[in-house]
Design a protein around this nucleic acid. Structure first.
Length: 144
DNA sequence: GTTCTAACA
DNA sequence: TGTTAGAA
């Protein structure tokens, strides 16, 4: 069987983007990408001398996040720090949600609930993530 | 035609 | 940071 990173649908780590694609996807100019690289804020995949740069998924997301913080008014260095922070938090959030995800119940066009499993080891109550008309909330329900 | 490096309005 | 030059 082919190796896919973390049990995902496919190995996102093997998605490669050329500098052109990165500029189109993130809105960051090629000049900026080269400058950020020069400042050691980002690193393309190992490339030889004058060949074109290629970026992996991780770097693409980092670039997109830096851009997001820049557009929010932060300086480049601060934007980079915040992007790095997000990069560290994302996997934790992902793992947590995936580990607690017990199923989704679409109750209507406007309401759905996500079953996050038991509240605690007593297994008497269950935690539901609610999406109602776009509004999110939690509900604790007694286990039948 | 695109990307690279280096330099400069 | 944008833009431009000349080379790859």
């Amino acid at each position: 069987m082919v190796e896919t990173s973390k049990g995902g649908l496919f190995n996102t780590e093997k998605l490669i983007f050329g500098i052109r694609q990165v500029t189109q996807i993130t809105g960051v100019s090629s000049r900026q990408l080269r400058y950020w690289e020069q400042q050691n804020y980002i690193s393309p995949i190992q490339q030889k001398k004058g060949t074109s740069r290629q970026y992996d998924m991780h770097t693409l997301l980092k670039i997109a996040n830096i851009q997001r913080f820049l557009s929010q008014g932060f300086t480049l260095s601060v934007a980079v720090e915040k992007a790095i922070k997000v990069g560290r938090e994302a996997p934790l959030i992902r793992d947590f949600v995936l580990s607690r995800m017990n199923g989704v119940n679409i109750e209507s066009d406007d309401r759905a609930t996500i079953d996050f499993g038991f509240l605690d080891d007593s297994h008497k109550q269950r935690v539901l993530g609610v999406i109602d008309h776009g509004k999110t909330s939690f509900e604790i329900i007694d286990e039948v």
